[in-house]
Design a protein around this nucleic acid. Structure first.
Length: 284
DNA sequence: ACCCAGGTGGCTT
DNA sequence: AAGCCACATGGG
């Protein structure tokens, strides 16, 4: 167990980072810290201090300081991004205030690819269950951490060899077939490279990846910060904010790219978090 | 029993 | 190009 500390941070809050729908392997503890897995390492993240002068403490099973600094994207200035977005669209301001601590984690492409293949027509709690199921079945043991065994995300080599019916037994639903095919393709092609258009084209070639999932993978797995994923939530948001017909995804996509620009994906995260929080509050 | 969830593929107009 | 619908699963 190693501990790393960063001080004098701003624009970071753990619930914003982990509950904005970008990752599925982190869970909140009773004290407000979060425990999760990144790469081959487990971690408990603790944030303290003020919003404009925060201290992040990571207790980790492994991985260098640089790995974790990179994973949490600690060197990106989100204050500057928020200012740029506010200039483009003042309607983002309440959402950016609510989710002020959102950061786009630098996750591995392979894990993001598989995670968002599992995301389609599925809800976030169940996506998390599915990912824990494949990790505990086919991922390497990391060890006991915070009271339970932790598993790395399964490698493409292992997943490519799993019979589809074994995956089906993990209750992944009809998405099982996508995973095995995706593992083979990834092993053959590796992480896609090139322009955003080339990246999108490479992603859409995966069976089970459509426009929405491609945008999630671009944003979370390939660091294309302008990629703007449109799901059922974002449809409702765009209808609410701009009066779009809820079915007209095409028009929303065009509009969003023009209006939000180079940080469109981050704008989408603020909006997604804001509306989902509001919905959670309504349910209580 | 019905509807929904970070949708997509395939088939029919 | 646009409009349907099936697709597994579990929670409300």
């Amino acid at each position: 167990m190693t501990t790393f500390v960063w001080e004098e941070l701003r624009d970071i809050a753990l619930p914003h980072v982990f509950d904005c729908g970008q990752c599925f392997r982190w869970n909140e503890n009773e004290d407000g810290s979060y425990t999760g897995v990144a790469g081959a390492h487990a971690c408990r993240a603790v944030l303290s201090g003020e919003a404009d002068n925060a201290k992040l403490t990571l207790h980790v099973s492994g991985g260098a300081r640089e790995f974790w600094q990179d994973y949490f994207d600690l060197t990106t200035d989100y204050g500057r991004i928020k200012e740029a977005l506010a200039v483009r669209e003042s309607k983002l301001i309440p959402a950016m205030e609510q989710g002020y601590g959102i950061r786009i984690l630098r996750q591995e492409f392979w894990e993001v690819l598989i995670s968002f293949l599992l995301s389609q027509n599925n809800n976030i709690p169940r996506i998390k269950t599915c990912i824990e199921a494949i990790s505990s079945a086919y991922g390497d043991e990391i060890g006991i951490f915070d009271g339970s065994m932790r598993y790395a995300f399964p490698s493409p080599e292992v997943l490519a060899e799993v019979p589809e019916e074994d995956l089906a037994a993990l209750k992944l639903g009809y998405r099982s077939a996508y995973l095995v095919r995706a593992a083979s393709r990834f092993l053959a092609e590796g992480t896609p490279r090139g322009s955003e258009a080339q990246l999108r084209e490479a992603l859409l070639a995966y069976h089970g990846v459509g426009p929405k999932v491609a945008n999630c993978i671009l944003l979370f797995g390939l660091r294309c910060l302008e990629a703007f994923p449109i799901d059922v939530w974002v449809r409702k948001i765009m209808q609410d904010l701009y009066g779009f017909d809820e079915k007209d995804t095409k028009a929303m996509q065009t509009f969003a790219e023009a209006r939000f620009g180079e940080f469109g994906g981050i704008a989408q995260q603020y909006l997604f978090f804001y509306y989902r929080e509001r919905d959670e509050a309504r349910k209580r």
